[in-house]
Amino acid sequence: MGAQWKTKIKETTAAAKGRIFTKLAKEIMVAARAGADPEMNSKLRMSIDQAKKASMPKDTIERAIKKGAGLLDDGVTFEKVIYEGFAPHRVPVIVECLTDNVNRTVTNIRILFRKGQLGNSGSVAWDFDYLGMIEATPAAAGADAETAAIEAGASDLEPAENGATLFLTAPSDLDAVSRALPAQGFTVQSAQLGYRPKNPVTLGATERAEVEAFLEEVDADDDVQNVYAGLAD
């Protein structure tokens, strides 16, 4: 729970995959506003990479790029809004949304937070660090994570699941470090900007289950892109 809550795509149902594709398409559309060429637009390039890793069809990716860049008549403009508050048991939460109707989104978020507490802007952000997070795996035996972090320009690193390493960067360095890691013997699995809690909360099994159920409800909303929770692993 140290980074984004629920970073792994584990859902396999058609409906779940559809929600994932919708969220990824929104990210691509927003990124494409700054240009449709991924070589000239690092945010778009990373969004496309994430979509490919989730097995999004090529034509869906291309359509999202064209929509975002205003190359299609049915383009949609999404606005990024961030909500802060607490899940049950005072677990701090940051919710990132991309929406074409802010009034609808805020109404839904208020309803979802009835089981927690919706706060004002800045009410919990102070308890998180905003940074780049790159999960990468060794591409060859002998690849050293610490050396790779230094050479690629990462600010820190820590072990991740299944033998992977989480490389941490300043937000402005995310793309450069992502591009440098392969030369250091690492294959990038994901690269994103996000929030990491400074003081994650440790809970018992019953309380943790209540928090996770709350987070699942929030994450399932169509306008919600990312949910970050200060919940200890």
Rank of each mutant, 00 (worst) to 15 (best):
Trp5Gln: 04
Ile9Tyr: 13
Lys10Trp: 11
Lys10Arg: 14
Ala14Met: 09
Thr22Asn: 13
Leu24Asp: 00
Ala25Trp: 00
Arg33Trp: 13
Gly35Pro: 13
Ala36His: 06
Glu39Pro: 07
Met40Asp: 01
Leu44Phe: 09
Arg45Lys: 15
Asp49Phe: 07
Gln50Leu: 01
Ser55Trp: 06
Ala64Thr: 02
Ile65Lys: 04
Ile65Met: 10
Leu71Lys: 10
Gly75Ser: 14
Phe78Thr: 09
Phe78Leu: 15
Lys80Leu: 08
His89Val: 05
His89Tyr: 15
Pro92Gln: 10
Val95Gly: 01
Leu98Thr: 00
Asp100Cys: 06
Asn108Val: 05
Asn108Met: 10
Arg114Met: 13
Gln117Pro: 01
Gly119Cys: 06
Trp126Ser: 13
Asp129Phe: 02
Met133Gly: 02
Ile134Glu: 03
Ala136His: 05
Thr137Arg: 15
Ala141Glu: 07
Ala141Met: 09
Ala154Cys: 07
Ala160Gln: 06
Asp173Phe: 00
Asp175Pro: 00
Ala180His: 09
Gln184Pro: 08
Gln184Leu: 08
Phe186Ala: 04
Leu193Ile: 03
Pro197Arg: 10
Asn199His: 12
Pro200Tyr: 06
Thr202Lys: 13
Arg208Thr: 01
Ala213Gly: 11
Ala213Glu: 14
Leu215Asp: 00
Leu215Gly: 00
Glu216Ile: 07
Asp219Asn: 13
Asp222Cys: 05
Asp223Met: 06
Leu231Pro: 01
